[in-house]
Nucleic acid binder design. Structure first.
Length: 839
RNA sequence: GCCCCUGUGGCGGAAUGGUAGACGCGCUCGACUCAAAAUCGAGUUCUGCAAGGAGUGUCGGUUCGAGUCCGACCAGGGGCACCA
């Protein structure tokens, strides 16, 4: 054996052997306990980046670890292959989105294989493959049959650059999540999935997801936004034809006596009725609709209203008349699109009332406040005691609210109800590169599903991207089809599905992939739920909520007996790197700069460079590090090792050259240790104990996804072995180390295993165990404190009694010096741990 | 505005209420070498010659004992945002 381990040779050799022997193909009929490990599948953008490497390394460690523990592991990989970038590439480079995507998949698959992931490539799938999206179309029709899919004319978020509709979740700060331009409002007929039907289930289900980060559960909870309150009606005085009341929703029914106006959204039926005979009202509505939705605009937007000629009667006092306004701050799609304003206890209503000189009445008193004290310069939003509120006076907010609901229900003008912030999921996209929605539009039969035997509806190949918009819409031959019901000439639906639909069930297809249907229920259930799902926190709401919904929808229609798809979730941090900016403001890549003392200079020009913030690796900031040359230089194990060390996995990891070098050093260190195996006899109790402690620690750390801790323990163990004299125990420790390193650095581990003369591959070796009794040392180090401060340590036999410990501690010179002749007031003794002398 | 998270050496970060700074990076010194790389050894929170003293964002509290628990504040990050 040579002095150095050569990863370039070994990596490929083991990767080929794993592949040739089909080691990582999961057997659905295995008797072993089944474990499903999954990382969020990548979009095939062209190249693997460090974020992928980190993500997949973590999953790979768990997968290999579980395998060594005797589990049958499913660890698949595929491609989230539909989406905008392929169309953009098509426009820019005149290539077909399909050929671009498939070429990228090929390149990225090769890259992943060179990192040595234990993946079951036999189950690889790509969502742009008709063999995948055809089944998706079938599932979509199943959901349609179950009434979970509907079509509705609705105001949508229109991205004027991408020329498509966006889901609410894809609008960030009023801008398209991809294009970054302000979203416009537009009315279109869209397909929707009834996610709101599952709002409560999705909320309740979060409680069972104990192995999810609290943060993600909280984000989903907020997103679903459950509010309990009262729906009730205000009768109108002289309402227009057909409208004699206005329904509102409130969570603060206790403030009902503080109402001083009603406000309607611009698209409320009563607002439209008002506009019919009043050009001023119509103009105001237009103004409201023109308003942008960006955060900046919303923040600075003044509360404005238009006073209609209608008045509403207060439900508890029909003599009290409230003016009805159309107001720009009322949301059309939350609650009923109308509200009653309580300026005293809602800041937004306060601003509105101030502007239009409406009365601001106190109906809740807090602390020392008294009923007669006026509201100050701000609304008082918190709970308190009802005042100036007739029969509610003296009741606490909660009780007052309940009392109003009780009376409203009794009198029949309102009912307790719950509403959600969550909206139904609009899935129509006016794009080419997506799953065609399997419907046909017939002039006489309406919207007709494509018959099952005609699935998949395949995307046409001959399309052009010369003009913006949806090429499917211009493709006359593809579009024209006969109506399946009446046979007359009809048109295909040209919208495609949101790509989040594709990723809402891929984990089921991984588990079971028959050719004639989306999945086999029993095979899928054998693997699901995913034991450990790993991905970026950016999917905390969108993807994870949709996938949960889709799974529950399948359960609802009896296709799958699983409620939650991901039993364990882990969101890993990003891989970051310092940024560099040249004098002219342009970004420079790490390869273009070099260190010069404490400063950075541009290598080519020698000009000074400003080093900026450490940020997520991104093309625009040019601070990316391509994994490829790093792999070639240091080998897969060093890259994997570095991805796991240093930072806790949920935090960001800053890429550093010295970090990867340190990792490569450790790989060589393992190799040298294996070469130092002596064959000499003899035991070494301390080293054995250290070995057991390391096994226990590493096992717990991997189970808790604390890879950085596992690695620290392995470094410590390696140091201990290096220092130990030759013995059989030392040789055994080296073997243990190799086993423990195997999930993280599998290539060197196989190489070492082979060198040690073990039979079979290390991927199949059992994970080492230990006897907990062996972890206990004979001697323990006791901390000796005076007044809680450490003064000395003492090594004593384990289990030494309190009196002996106390005596030994008091005898210490340093303790005596601290006591300075005085008598201790109290002595705390924790056996095997510490003695604290209180002076 | 509301909700949540995080503050520990030069850096990444360890610490069931019980020896703060494990482990890694960097740095210093030493060994090996003609020299370098690689490797090995010693050291590395601050302050002090030392004994000692101070020290986990700030201020207070609980406790024999607080990085850890409680309260207030400061700073950074994230999520939601006219949600009735």
């Amino acid at each position: 054996m040579d002095g150095r381990f050569d990863p370039t040779q070994a990596d490929r050799r083991w990767q080929e052997r794993w592949e040739d022997e089909r080691c990582f193909e999961a057997d659905s009929s295995s008797d072993k306990p089944k474990t499903y490990i999954l990382e969020m599948f990548p979009y095939p953008s062209g190249r693997i980046h460090m974020g992928h490497v980190r993500n997949y390394t973590m999953g790979d460690v768990i997968a290999r670890f579980r395998r060594m523990q005797g589990h049958e592991v499913l660890h698949p990989m595929g491609w989230d292959a539909f989406g905008m970038p392929a169309e953009n590439a098509a426009m820019e480079r005149k290539v077909h989105p399909g050929s671009w995507t498939w070429a990228n998949i090929g390149a990225m698959r090769d890259q992943l294989k060179r990192i040595g992931f234990a993946l079951d490539w036999s189950r690889e799938l790509a969502t742009c493959d008709p063999a995948y999206y055809g089944h998706e179309q079938a599932l979509f029709l199943d959901l349609f049959d179950a009434g979970l899919v509907y079509r509705k004319e609705s105001e949508v978020n229109w991205d004027p650059v991408d020329m498509t509709v966006l889901a609410n979740e894809q609008v960030i700060d009023g801008k398209g999540w991809r294009s970054g331009v302000p979203v416009e409002r537009k009315k279109l007929s869209q397909w929707f999935l009834k996610i709101t039907q599952f709002a409560d289930e999705l909320l309740e289900g979060l409680g069972s997801l104990e192995r999810w980060p609290d943060k993600v559960r909280l984000m989903q909870e907020n997103w679903i936004g459950k509010s309990r309150g009262l729906h009730f009606r205000f009768a109108l005085v002289d309402g227009p034809a057909g409208i004699d009341e206005v329904e509102v929703f409130t969570t603060r029914s206790d403030t009902i006596f503080g109402a001083s106006f009603l406000a309607l959204s611009a698209s409320h039926p009563l607002a439209l009725a008002a506009a019919e005979h009043d050009p001023d009202a119509a103009a105001f509505i237009l103004e409201c609709n023109a308003g942008g939705t960006s955060a900046a605009e919303v923040e600075t937007l003044e509360k404005k209203g238009f006073k209609t000629k209608f008045e509403a009667k207060h439900p508890f006092n029909s003599n009290l008349r409230l003016p009805v306004y159309i107001a720009n701050f009322v949301l059309a799609n939350y609650g009923t699109g109308a509200l009653f304003g309580v300026p005293g206890h809602d800041q937004r209503d306060y601003e509105f009332a101030t502007r239009y000189h409406l009365s601001i009445k106190r109906v809740v008193a807090q602390g020392r406040d008294v009923a007669s004290e006026p509201i100050g310069t701000e609304a008082e939003g918190g709970p308190g005691i009802a005042v100036n509120s007739d029969f509610l006076d003296g009741l606490e907010t909660r009780d007052a609210a309940a009392e109003v609901i009780r009376r409203a229900e009794e009198a029949g003008w309102g009912r307790a109800s719950t509403i959600y912030r969550l909206r139904d999921w609009g899935v129509s996209r006016q794009r080419y590169w997506g799953t065609p929605i399997p419907f046909i539009h017939c002039d006489s039969c309406g919207v007709v599903p494509v018959p099952r035997d005609q699935l998949p509806v395949i995307l046409p190949e001959d399309v052009s991207f010369e003009i913006p918009g949806n090429p499917l819409d211009r493709h006359a031959a593809w579009k024209s089809v006969n109506c399946p019901t009446c046979g007359a000439a009809a048109r295909r639906e040209t919208d495609t599905l949101d790509t989040f639909v594709d990723s809402s069930w891929y984990f089921i297809r991984f588990a079971s992939q028959p050719s004639d249907r989306p999945f086999d229920r029993f095979e899928a259930e054998a693997w699901l739920p995913v034991a450990q799902y790993i991905g970026g926190v950016e999917h905390a709401i969108l993807h994870l909520l949709y996938a949960r919904f889709w799974t529950r929808a399948l359960q609802h229609i009896g296709q799958l007996g699983i409620a939650e798809p991901f039993a364990g979730l882990f969101t890993q941090g990003m891989v970051t790197h310092e940024t560099y900016k040249a004098g002219d403001g342009s970004w420079l890549s790490p390869g273009e700069v070099r260190r010069d003392g404490d400063d950075w200079v541009h290598i080519e020009s020698g000009h000074p460079v400003a080093s900026g913030r450490v940020e997520k690796m991104s093309k625009s900031k040019r601070n990316t590090i391509d994994p490829e040359p790093i792999l070639a230089k240091h080998g897969a194990d060093a890259v994997r090792w570095f991805m796991l060390s240093d930072s806790p996995p949920e935090r960001d990891l800053e890429w550093s050259e010295s970090g990867i070098e340190g990792a490569a050093r450790f790989v060589q260190r393992v190799w040298r240790l294996v070469a130092s195996v002596s064959g000499e006899p003899g035991d070494d109790k301390d080293l054995e104990r250290k070995g057991y402690a390391t096994i226990a620690g590493v096992t717990a750390a991997i189970e808790g996804l604390q890879f950085n801790k596992a690695i620290a323990l392995l470094y410590e163990f390696a140091s201990a072995i290096e220092k130990a004299p030759a013995s059989a125990a030392r040789d055994g420790a080296v073997r243990t180390l190799v086993l423990l390193v195997a999930p993280m650095a599998p290539h060197i581990a196989e190489e070492c295993w082979d060198f040690l003369g073990e039979t079979g591959m290390i991927i199949d070796a059992p994970w080492p165990g230990f006897d907990p009794a062996m972890l206990v040392a004979d001697e323990v180090t006791i901390a000796i404190q005076v007044n809680g401060k450490l003064r000395e340590t003492l090594t004593v036999a384990r289990g030494l009694d309190r009196a002996a410990l106390e005596a030994q501690a008091l005898a210490l010179e340093k303790v005596q010096r601290q006591l300075d002749g005085g008598t201790p007031r109290k002595i705390i003794v924790v056996p095997d741990r510490l003695v604290n002398i209180v002076a």
